[in-house]
Simulated assay, not measured.
Amino acid sequence: MTADVRASATRPASSEDGRLTRHSFSFGPHYDPANLGFGPLVSHNDDLLDPGAGYPDHPHTGLEIVTWVLEGALVHTDSARPGASHVLPAGRAQVLSAGTGIRHSEVADPASGRCRFVQAWLTPTATGGAPSYVLGEAPAPGEGLVEVVGGDGLPIGTAGARLLVARLAPGSSVVLPDDPTQHLFAATGAVTLDGLTLGAGDAVRLTDEPGRAVTATEATELLVWSFAALAG
């Protein structure tokens, strides 16, 4: 049983062209051979964009790319639907399955001010599929942990992977799933977990620690990646 805490202050950061990105795993010039991923999760970036800033059109292959918007709104375009775009407001998820290859862009909607979002990359269970894109609605506050990707949420091509989100009032608690591998991220606020404290931007990687209770000490938005089994 392990609980590996990763404090926000220890994560490498990239700053360029109106964006600040904090990386949870080895990424680009921040190469760390001891931190290449956690199960199928190979990237977990926390991005803050100025209005109109972001990531222009670029390619991906062989990844499941999940985005959850925390603040503002994000404008998404991709090569599967030339000329079309989607605006993702705060509290909305999208899943982009890169498959055999897709190009996409993610830019902060200028009309909505700055944008903060978390984007995770996961290895798919099978490769070579056609690219796809799906959007989902926000879970209602006060419902505890809600599956937004995997399970009853948006479909994802990584078997056994689920993203659950909880919006917790101070003093409220949720019980984590029974899956053996979980990645908790306190996007805002602060929580406690069996004597551990996570502040805003902190994460913990849990192995063989199912069913633990998490309690908010202030208003918190909690993101939990839960995996039925390790993959990769």
Rank of each mutant, 00 (worst) to 15 (best):
M1L: 13
M1E: 07
T10W: 09
T10P: 01
S14M: 05
S15P: 00
G18N: 05
T21C: 02
T21H: 00
H23T: 02
F25S: 02
G28W: 01
P33E: 13
P33H: 09
S43R: 12
P51V: 00
G54P: 05
D57Y: 00
H58C: 06
T61R: 15
G62Y: 04
E64R: 03
E64H: 07
V66P: 03
V66R: 02
W68R: 09
G72E: 04
G72L: 08
T77K: 14
R92Q: 15
V95P: 09
L96K: 04
L96S: 09
S97L: 05
R103G: 13
S105F: 07
E106I: 05
R114V: 03
C115V: 12
R116T: 03
F117A: 10
F117Q: 07
P124Q: 05
Y133P: 06
L135V: 06
L135K: 05
A138Y: 05
A138C: 09
A140H: 10
P141L: 11
L145D: 03
V148K: 04
V149T: 07
D152C: 00
P155Q: 02
I156W: 02
T158W: 04
G160I: 01
A161Y: 04
L163Q: 10
L163W: 05
L168Y: 08
L176K: 10
P180A: 12
P180V: 12
H183L: 15
F185H: 15
A187P: 05
D194P: 00
T197S: 13
G199Q: 00
G199T: 06
G201K: 02
D202R: 04
R205H: 13
T207C: 07
D208L: 12
P210L: 09
V214N: 08
A216V: 11
A219K: 13
A219T: 15
A219R: 15
L223D: 08
W225R: 10
W225K: 12
S226I: 12
F227A: 11
F227Y: 15
F227V: 08
A228W: 04
A228K: 11
A229N: 06
L230D: 14
